[in-house]
Design a protein around this nucleic acid. Structure first.
Lengths: 341, 341
DNA sequence: TTGCGGTATGATAGCGCTAACAGTTCGGGT
DNA sequence: ACCCGAACTGTTAGCGCTATCATACCGCAA
């Protein structure tokens, strides 16, 4: 196996010379496109392999005007929810020519805008983006992009193109309904202090709406930002219980802080769910390992990822237009932290 | 603001015509390169903005032979460890022109190979890849790539170019040392059943090595795969305690199953760390919220990400060669689950 | 006047690949 | 013998951008 100057990057021409056929034929072999005789194909593959040739997709994409990438723009990777969405997306995309490329915004609209700009400048075949709220500039870019766009997680609003998600407002209402039905009356909310987490905001809005319909209001609330969610859950729970000892239900904006709260209550010998009930949101698998099962609502993350990827790949294959809105329905899992009536 | 056919994608030419200057000048303005008069610059920017033009990086990259992307190849996103590495990488890269692009291998060497092939076909400016173990083909590709490569997480082996990580073998030894020193003698191991998790394997090897030096061997072991780690930790712990009631220490291959085990022990009223000690590995922040602090070892994930990114960006800027090996030293955090002597 | 350095802009030639079309060969039907 | 189409391979012309060099213009010193 001859050794070549590692400085000069290999091109199709190198493979073509090494195998004695035209660049075009090499290109055809490497892409499995068009008719190539078996002997030629093998000759080319052998040459390509022995050279260690890796095709240059930059040039290929420019020439063919095709980029088999799907941009996925999400707020965070570190909270268990988006990795699962990614899993769903990958599952579906693995069966196609498309590949996901992630961009993370950290819940910042400006960062979202620049991530989007960056992604679109690579001319992806489609885009999956979390949420329905974007800056004006982001909206304009998306509208201009000319590729399928799927906004995921949330459907409380007007999608730009397609959307797959759940109604967080409804989710909040449902949870409130269940809590009230179970006889709890002094309800507090514990959540993230994130002006840009629109989904958490909508859940809380729906929740308060339903409380109001029952003549109730939140008796207390507590917000946090940063740090270990489990620990914050403990701390906030302690704070609320100290400040408002009459509270009989704690509604957490996510399971992680809910789990922290649950651990705190159990350690302190509180009667859960008799004297005090708890509920979170997301349905993370982490909860399975807890001493008691926290009430929660599955956010259909895997399914959202799958459906979004299906929409993209469907439109990619067929060239059809989008505009679909798929609403998924989370299931309330009462667990062991809401008392049964 | 005129509206254009959204079908035809915009090019430099459109902006050039709209602003009455050459494409070259537009290109210069959009990249802030070369001398352009203030009036021209503004004219161009106005036109570009009003058209909603997004440059085509595919074409730009091909023409300039520069791609400001850094490939990051990791086994998984769903276990809290790699997201933190990503955070470190992003932190550093955000201060440069470079951008990370992740690829996930799910601990499969074959998948790693294809992810690598895919990445290299986009001709990134550098590559960060977890682990030192790769297929022959992967090795060949990396060697040919002609860009800075940093292998991260592990330094027990021979790096291809640069490496940043800890010695997992040593980490295992250190933990064994501490456990033995604390007087535990009937030690069991609980971990993942993953032939390709080389780092967990090396930790266990180091661990057993040190036990052997003290005339000890593992009294029992238990492996799992898939499912909720917290739950698996419970189940495995229960299994071991039933099967080998004489066990006095449980060494877990990661904090998540360790946390599950800890919860199990506490619930069952076991005397931790008196009658039985526990330790995990990773130093995940989740542990902060647990009722008792699990002994663990910080894997320096954030720092590994930072250093790796620094190496890439340094080499990118200077064109210098690599070959550095940076060893980081994890700190043993005894927590409350190893008895003090 | 000529010439010179600096600034601002344009023209030209690719980057490495693929789409589209143009051969070439070969076997078989008429 | 001829033609025809299928199977295979090659030629040409870009894709949208940037590197490089050429040009135009300005003010000012010689």
């Amino acid at each position: 196996m001859p050794s070549y100057d590692p400085k000069r990057p290999l091109t199709l021409r190198d493979v073509s010379e090494a195998s004695g056929v035209s660049e075009m034929t090499v290109s055809r072999v490497l892409r499995n496109r068009g008719d190539v005789s078996v002997t030629t194909r093998e000759k080319v593959l052998k040459a390509a392999r022995s050279l260690g040739y890796v095709p240059n997709k930059i040039a290929g994409a420019l020439a063919s005007q095709r980029v088999n990438l799907v941009g996925v723009v999400i707020p965070s990777l570190s909270n268990m929810v988006f990795p699962e969405v990614m899993t769903g997306i990958s599952e579906v995309l693995d069966g196609t020519v498309l590949q996901p490329v992630v961009g993370v915004t950290n819940y910042s609209p400006d960062r979202e805008e620049s991530v989007l700009y960056e992604m679109l400048s690579w001319r992806p075949s489609g885009l999956i983006i979390a949420g329905l709220e974007h800056t004006d500039a982001s909206h304009a870019m998306l509208a201009q992009a000319g590729v399928p766009i799927v906004e995921i997680m949330d459907i409380d609003g007007t999608p730009l193109d397609s959307a797959v998600g759940i109604s967080h407002r409804r989710a909040g209402r449902q949870m409130a309904e269940a809590i009230v039905a179970a006889g709890y009356r002094s309800i507090a909310f514990l959540g993230t202090q994130m002006p840009n987490d629109h989904r958490a905001r909508k859940r809380l809005e729906g929740f308060e709406e339903e409380l109001a319909r029952n003549g109730l209001t939140l008796i207390d609330r507590e917000f946090y930002s940063g740090g270990s969610a489990l620990l914050k859950g403990r701390e906030m729970t302690e704070a609320i219980l100290k400040r408002t000892p009459t509270v009989d239900f704690l509604y957490y904006s996510n399971d992680m802080i809910g789990a922290g709260g649950l651990l705190y209550c159990l350690e302190n010998g509180l009667d859960v769910p008799g004297k005090i009930g708890l509920a979170g949101f997301n349905g993370v698998e982490l909860l399975d390992g807890l001493p008691r099962k926290l009430a929660t609502m599955d956010a259909c993350r895997l399914e959202i990822g799958r459906r979004a990827a299906e929409i993209i790949s469907g439109q990619h294959a067929s060239g059809a237009a989008g505009g679909a809105v798929i609403e998924l329905f989370p299931i309330l899992q009462p667990g062991d932290t809401i008392r049964k009536r």
